[in-house]
Design a protein around this nucleic acid. Sequence first.
DNA 1: TATTGTTATACTCTATAACTATA
DNA 2: TATAGTTATAGAGTATAACAATA
Lengths: 171, 171
Amino acid sequence: MSSERQAAEEPGGPAPTPRGAAFLLTQLGTHAADRFAVRVAELGLTPPDIGLLRTIATRPGRSQRALAADLGVVPSRVVALIDRLDGKGLVERRRSTEDRRNHELYLSAEGGRVLGEVRGIAAAHEDDILSALDDGQRAELTELLGLVAAQQGLAPGIHPGYRNLPGGQGS
Amino acid sequence: MSSERQAAEEPGGPAPTPRGAAFLLTQLGTHAADRFAVRVAELGLTPPDIGLLRTIATRPGRSQRALAADLGVVPSRVVALIDRLDGKGLVERRRSTEDRRNHELYLSAEGGRVLGEVRGIAAAHEDDILSALDDGQRAELTELLGLVAAQQGLAPGIHPGYRNLPGGQGS
DNA sequence: TATTGTTATACTCTATAACTATA
DNA sequence: TATAGTTATAGAGTATAACAATA
């Protein structure tokens, strides 16, 4: 926040709150995540569920271990997440015939259908969040965010929220 | 995500992961929050701590109840957060002389000093996150994010992460 | 002996509800 | 009776470590 003003030197009013781009990013990122969570909750799903469905759809037949590595979470957490989706009939575990220790993960037909619904929800969500901007501004914003994400080393489509870090407020 | 492609119709490769602006926002927002958390951890503070320090600095002398309302959290949570900061000597609770039920909240001298350090950290954080962009692009991004934040009704400087919503992955 | 998936356990964060003191 | 702050408790989420089956 190179343009941030200091509190003690403002006699007229107290400390300004940060409005730098980094703060705006976390503020808007949390807001967008919250809104999306509300939307997919109507399907009985949580945002982590969605991430799993997407990842399995992208590369079907992989093991739970490999999925855990992709997402950057511990294997035991994948167990609990898959249990949920398996119980809902959205994901199937199939014992590998090559190595019977492995579970190959696949989306069920119903899982594929639900993921299609999620795509519709995501599109509506995008329109909602960006409703302040016209098409040109949306393209501009998307390009700038893409540049930042690439430079910061964020894997396309993998949400860093699967990682384990302290806190949660951010600036 | 109006430009999102469908998985089943891509024979060459499996489902693409979302790259719309809304997904980029949550991805980058979470990433920026994580990075900031790591930075302030060196001061022994968490991101929620920072938000409290900032809010108290902005409007000193207010009650815990009022602070809870500002941040959108339950009063009992403010108790725990202030306990932390009080124990570190950064915040002072003073019994109101007008209504002895109230605790007026103030930053200690040390608290003000630490908040100054946080401003430096926030500036370095901003430079880090935006290092992919030149000055013109940073201004452009900040303006676009400001438009979106205003339209979405986000209060300047108040982090929505203080709210209580399900999930955490977002799109 | 090493690896996959699982279970058992503990820890952190946060909300709800009951309680104390002041009004 | 109502309100400010506090304490006690419970629930969700997630990690670590021990375990069983398979290699």
